[in-house]
Computed example of a mutant assay.
Amino acid sequence: MLIPIPCVVMRGGTSKGPFFLHSDLPQDEARRNQVLLAVMGSPDRRQIDGLGGGDSLSSKVVMVSASSRPGIDVEYLFAQVSVDNASVDTSPNCGNMLAGVAPFALEHGLVAADKPQTSVRIYNQNTGKMVEAIVQTPGGKVNYEGEVHIDGVPGSGAPILLNFMDAAGAKTGKLMPTGQAIDVIDGVEVSCVDFSTPIVFIAASALGKRGDESKAELDADNALLARIETLRRAAALRMGLGDVSDKVLPKVVLLSPPTAGGQICSRYFVPWNCHAAHAVTGALCVAAACHIPGTLAHRLAQLDPAAPQQVTIEHPGGQLHTQVTQAGTDAEGWPHISKAGVVRTARPLVAGVTYVPGHLW
């Protein structure tokens, strides 16, 4: 017997995957994870028996529910489903898939729409942080069509503004989890920053790279990937994240000066290969790091003195535009970044039911 589960497959930013009402899935975590593996067709490199696309960017799941928290409209839990391993990781957030949460919630009646736009306050269960999503809702209906183009996605769509509120210490509890702007690991300078997601920053030049290489070029360099993983695991211990050999956090970013009119050039690893474009949460951490004196990002960034809050990040698929709001310093003397925002687009691709083997339920 096959069990039908209602879902909507949505593109959110440069990623895509099924969105579920949390109540439509098993409440037991282990059983839910088995169901999600079956939904996506993992573990299998092609994910031929599921909805996954054989790539980490299309092997993602979002679960949404109404919230009883004061000042919060909905809650969402993100899951990164491994393509070729039987693992489901809910430790990271995904800012791209987050772009679809507010439209999904509006379409399912979890939030009442305003006119001409609706602000949806979202609690991210992965990080314990709040995000404000502003969606275009002329006539009280979600509008997906518009003129906003984001690099890495064909065509254009209606803007969805995501404001990440007080996102410092998303996983470690500290903006600077090692307490230093620069750490030296095995002779390599790194900056460990946790804003919306924890990242280990490395200057591309320190690993013999320009920093503007293509994803294919970086993914083909097995020695580089091995070196990055060694540094990532060592940095994670210093950040208080423990053994991350089977975890996707922290991520790694190779940084270099901009070459195409932006403020900084970034190559974001997911973490065992290079992202085809750039994760939103990763971009916000890059932007935040550009405002933290002493970090590698601050050292390499070329901020515009007339608009220092605007940080355009160059990535393999083009550029990603962010905006950072700084308000004084935190208790440890680091910059207090109260808000960081980015514009994404999203749209539903197909709605219906997905089927899983009955014995998994």
Score class of each variant (00 low, 15 high):
Pro4Asn: 08
Pro4Gln: 07
Val8Asp: 06
Val9Asp: 00
Met10Leu: 09
Met10His: 11
Met10Asp: 01
Arg11Met: 07
Gly13Arg: 05
Phe19Asn: 03
Phe20Cys: 10
Leu21Gly: 06
Gln27Trp: 06
Gln34Cys: 06
Ala38Asp: 02
Met40Pro: 10
Ser42Thr: 02
Asp44Ile: 06
Arg46His: 12
Gly50Arg: 11
Gly52Leu: 09
Ser56Val: 11
Leu57Cys: 01
Ser59Phe: 10
Met63Leu: 14
Val64Arg: 08
Ser67Pro: 14
Phe78Ser: 02
Gln80Ser: 11
Ser82Asn: 11
Asp84Thr: 09
Val88Leu: 12
Thr90His: 12
Pro92Ser: 09
Met97Asp: 02
Ala105Glu: 04
Leu106Lys: 06
Leu106Ala: 03
Leu106Pro: 11
Glu107Phe: 07
Ala112Met: 06
Asp114Thr: 11
Ser119Ala: 11
Arg121Glu: 08
Gln125Arg: 15
Asn126Gln: 04
Lys129Asn: 01
Met130Thr: 15
Val131His: 06
Val131Arg: 03
Ala133Arg: 06
Ala133Phe: 10
Lys141His: 14
Val142Lys: 04
Tyr144His: 13
Gly146Val: 10
Gly146Asn: 08
Gly146Ile: 11
His149Gly: 05
Asp151Leu: 09
Gly152Ser: 07
Gly152Ile: 08
Gly155Asn: 13
Leu161Trp: 01
Asn163Glu: 13
Asp166Leu: 09
Ala170Ser: 15
Thr172Ser: 05
Gly173Met: 11
Pro177Leu: 12
Thr178Arg: 09
Ile182Trp: 01
Asp186Leu: 04
Gly187Pro: 05
Leu207Ser: 10
Gly208Glu: 08
Lys209Ser: 01
Lys209Glu: 04
Gly211His: 12
Leu218Arg: 03
Asp219Glu: 10
Ala226Gln: 13
Leu231Gln: 02
Arg233Tyr: 01
Arg238Asn: 11
Arg238Asp: 05
Arg238Ala: 06
Leu241Asp: 00
Val244Ser: 03
Ser245Pro: 03
Ser245Glu: 06
Val248Ala: 13
Val252Cys: 10
Leu255Asn: 03
Ser256Glu: 00
Gly261Arg: 04
Gln263Arg: 07
Phe269His: 00
His275Cys: 08
His275Lys: 07
His278Arg: 01
His278Ser: 10
His278Val: 15
Val280Tyr: 10
Thr281Val: 15
Cys285Thr: 14
Val286Met: 10
His291Met: 04
Thr295Asp: 06
Arg299Thr: 14
Arg299Glu: 13
Arg299Gln: 14
Ala307Pro: 01
Gln309His: 14
Gln309Met: 07
Gln309Gly: 15
Gly317Lys: 00
His321Val: 13
Gln323Ile: 07
Val324Asn: 08
Thr325Lys: 09
Asp330Pro: 09
Asp330Val: 13
Gly341Pro: 00
Gly341Phe: 07
Val342Asn: 04
Arg344Lys: 12
Pro348Gln: 02
Gly352Tyr: 12
Val353Trp: 06
Val356Gln: 04
Gly358Ile: 01
Leu360His: 10
Trp361Phe: 14
Trp361Thr: 03
